[in-house]
Write a protein that binds this DNA or RNA. Structure first.
Length: 409
RNA sequence: GUGGCCGUAGCUCAGCUUGGUUAGAGCGCCUGGUUGUGGUCCAGGAGGUCGCGGGUUCAAAUCCCGUCGGUCACCCCA
């Protein structure tokens, strides 16, 4: 086999894929409980959407996008994230009122793969569009935190910061730029390059932590509105019992953020890519994309990293029963029984290949079935043997009682 | 884009330093341990161009060069 999956992509097969399905359905259910509706957007968009939405000076747009020309020469890009798409979809649909959307699916970034970083990776997320008030921030942050709890990710720290509104950022940016220019020769080449284009990102660069230890932080430049907003976000989180820590240097890498930004970081997590999720407010994004000014706040969580950080979740047995064909002559009856039980909604598998009873039981075990149903000599009396595989006990019951028997297990 | 480590059975690896008869282990897989019964145990079996190409040598998984691939880290992000 000389054709393999492209660099940085993975095949996710059973049984591991069951965990992924669980991750997605858990998120779907949670988002529904918070009033978010499923929002499906294209996996590729006009390149312009990300260039403008995410920001020309960001790492993502500068060198991580999968961009290609289609047959008519249009520049398209596989989505590196979903927020810009959802906001675009909101605006395309009229862009009126409050919109709460959730999504899940693959994102694409051209990077050197490593642990917890793939070229095709999977995110779940929500966007709360059209609401400027701080309780939207609180709700989004809470939802992400609850999700990590449900996914068995232990000891999650919510790192929180406010980088101010557009005006605050402008003031801060100017001051920070000045401060950085004075220390240019101490900074890494990357950081020096960013002074003009995107000075805030120097702050959370690990290479320059020593130099920037006493640099000005966004918090010192919050206007009264932003400060009040942030105060309510914090008290709101405390009110519902979501623990957080203020991280003054957290600024995040995408240009569209303003005011509240946050990340979820599991403590004691070995891999280098520590954040399993993050998000923030993006009140200016809609305008950048050509829509009317619309506030918004959102969240994205990386499934790959969540599953790495998770202690594990118990999915329970994958099959309700495995049907064992005791003699070749019973195959047709057994297949018929499987059909009926599946129609009733039970998860049933069967091996009609004429293997030994022993082999079929082995398979029942391997397939993680709760029970085995043996179709054998009792069939002429309309009976089967039902065996509880976990307990190792079995009994003979009439065929029509199988459903009842499975229900009571 | 930069750097470290690694490519031997489906998976995880040993063997390579001191080149030499049929290349090993564990797990997994298949079959069996008589009478229709799994998960434990026991026995047997299938399965390998030693990533690929070239070189050195009487002889290369083992030494040298190249190449492709994987992996981890930096940068940055989910």
């Amino acid at each position: 086999m000389d054709i393999r999956a492209p660099k940085g992509t993975d095949d996710i097969l059973p049984p591991e894929s069951h965990l992924w399905r669980h991750a997605v359905t858990t998120f779907d259910n949670l988002a529904q409980r918070y009033g978010y509706g499923l929002t499906l957007t294209p996996l590729f968009e006009q390149t312009e959407l990300f260039a403008r939405g995410v920001g020309e000076d960001t790492e993502v747009v500068e060198k991580q996008m999968y961009t290609f020309a289609d047959r008519k020469g249009r520049s398209l890009t596989l989505r590196p994230e979903a927020t810009a798409s959802v906001v675009r979809a909101y605006l395309s649909g009229g862009g009126d009122g409050v919109f709460k959307g959730s999504y899940s699916g693959p994102m694409f970034r051209y990077e050197r793969p490593q642990k917890g970083r793939r070229r095709q990776f999977y995110q779940v997320g929500v966007e709360y569009i059209g609401e400027a008030g701080p309780f939207a921030d609180v709700e989004v942050i809470e939802l992400g935190y609850r999700y990590l709890q449900e996914m068995g990710v232990p000891d999650v720290a919510v790192q929180l910061n406010s980088i101010g509104d557009v005006a605050d950022r402008q003031t801060f940016r100017t001051v920070l730029q000045e401060w950085l220019r004075e220390r240019q020769e101490l900074l890494s080449p990357d950081a020096r390059r960013r002074i003009e284009g995107n000075p805030m990102r120097v702050l959370d660069s690990k290479a320059d932590t020593e130099v920037t230890a006493d640099a000005p932080t966004p918090a010192e430049f919050l206007g009264s509105d932003s400060a009040a907003h942030f105060a309510v976000v914090r008290s709101g989180l405390e009110r519902i019992g979501i623990p957080y820590v203020i991280e003054p240097r957290l600024v995040r890498g995408l240009d569209y953020y303003n005011r509240t930004v946050f990340e979820y970081v599991p403590r004691q997590y070995g891999a280098a890519q520590s954040a399993v999720g993050g998000g923030g407010r993006y009140d200016g994004l809609a305008e950048v994309l050509g829509g009317r000014p619309t506030p918004g706040v959102g969240l994205a969580m990386g499934l790959d990293r969540i599953l790495l950080a998770s202690d594990g979740v118990d999915l329970g047995p994958l099959l309700d029963a495995f049907i064992v064909v005791a003699e070749p002559g019973n195959t047709s009856d057994a297949v018929g029984l499987a059909s009926r039980l599946r129609l009733e909604g039970w998860r049933i598998d069967i091996d009609p290949g004429g293997r030994s009873v022993k082999a079929q039981f082995r398979k029942a075990d391997k397939k993680d079935a709760r029970a085995a149903i043996v179709v054998g000599t009792e069939w002429v009396d309309n009976e089967v043997v039902v065996r509880d595989l976990a307990r190792g006990v079995q009994e003979v019951i009439p065929v029509e009682e199988i459903g009842q028997w499975l229900t009571n297990r």
